[in-house]
Write a protein that binds this DNA or RNA. Structure first.
Length: 280
DNA sequence: TGACACCTGCGT
DNA sequence: ACGCAGGTGTCA
């Protein structure tokens, strides 16, 4: 479900409902006690009575900054979903964690596949967390030159490297394929073999793809909903991820290839994204 | 680097 | 019945 544009859309849609609100009582469902760390008793004890000062985001993590100085980090993984509703609102299965707010409403967290995680961390723990994640794609300090030298410094297959959150934050399977397609770079190229020109193009297309998706409030393939329960509108804008094997490339008409790279389904155009560009 | 694990549900 | 899914963690 969520890559950077989707998490950022959730942040923006939840912020008006949660900023400044006090958490009266936190609840963790019995069938998913490992959803949060520390354990449910400590987690709830440190949450209850605190106010949410600000909503943030780091990579694919949503952040609730509390007035205690602690931070809640939430990773939605594949099917996590958050919404603020009236307590009387009908509930659906797979609600694992929720809390009562001081305006009488509830924040609810659903996760069908149960991969998502919440953590309540101290400022010192936040520093470590923050350092373990690569740069934000829109960080102005991430220049084309910096990005090129990051790529040269890692001898890795390009696509799995883009998905590695310690290398760069927020990119997932959809937008990795989209950015590589737009940049005309084969997903199996090696990071240290890209030219400076290609590195610059790739960074540029990563930013284009992410900001365009954000403008359309994220991509809903199936489950993703923002904080108001609305799906994103970006699916129809995807150029390659939504295509099947042998579909025509939207740019050149050649047949799209779908194979597996780094254990992830990967779409690319062998003609627009040659393995060996020099030979072209 | 890959194989597999963690989960549930949906489309073929 | 089987393959696949927006993510990541751990093992060899």
């Amino acid at each position: 479900m969520p890559e950077l544009p989707e998490v950022e859309t959730v942040r923006r849609t939840l912020a008006p409902h949660l900023t400044g609100r006090r958490i009266l009582q936190t609840h963790i469902g019995e069938y998913r006690r490992t959803v949060a760390t520390p354990d449910p008793e400590r987690f709830c004890a440190r949450m209850d009575g605190r106010s949410i000062v600000e909503l943030g985001r780091r990579g694919k993590f949503l952040l609730f900054r509390l007035d205690s100085g602690d931070t809640v980090t939430i990773h939605l993984r594949m099917t996590g979903e958050l919404s603020v509703v009236e307590p009387a609102a009908a509930t659906t299965p797979h609600m694992h964690l929720w809390f009562d707010l001081d305006d009488g409403r509830q924040l609810r967290y659903y996760d069908v596949r149960k991969f998502g995680r919440w953590s309540l961390i101290t400022p010192a723990q936040f520093e470590l967390f923050d350092q373990s994640i690569g740069p934000e794609p829109f960080d102005p300090e991430l220049t084309a030159e910096t990005f090129a030298s990051m790529l040269r410094g890692r001898r890795r297959i390009l696509k799995p490297l883009l998905l590695d959150q310690s290398f760069i934050a927020g990119i997932g399977n959809i937008y990795a394929d989209e950015a590589l397609f737009r940049a005309g770079i084969h997903p199996r190229r090696h990071s240290h073999e890209l030219t400076a020109d290609e590195a610059e193009r790739l960074l540029c297309e990563i930013r284009w793809v992410l900001s365009s998706a954000l403008e359309h409030r994220g991509t809903t393939l199936r489950d993703y909903r923002d904080g108001n329960g609305e799906p994103g509108e970006n699916l129809s804008r995807l150029q390659i991820y939504s295509l099947d094997h042998d579909d025509p490339c939207p740019r050149c008409g050649a047949r799209i290839v779908r194979d597996v790279v780094g254990q992830r389904g990967t779409r690319f155009c062998p003609s627009c994204q040659p393995v060996n560009p020099q030979a072209k």
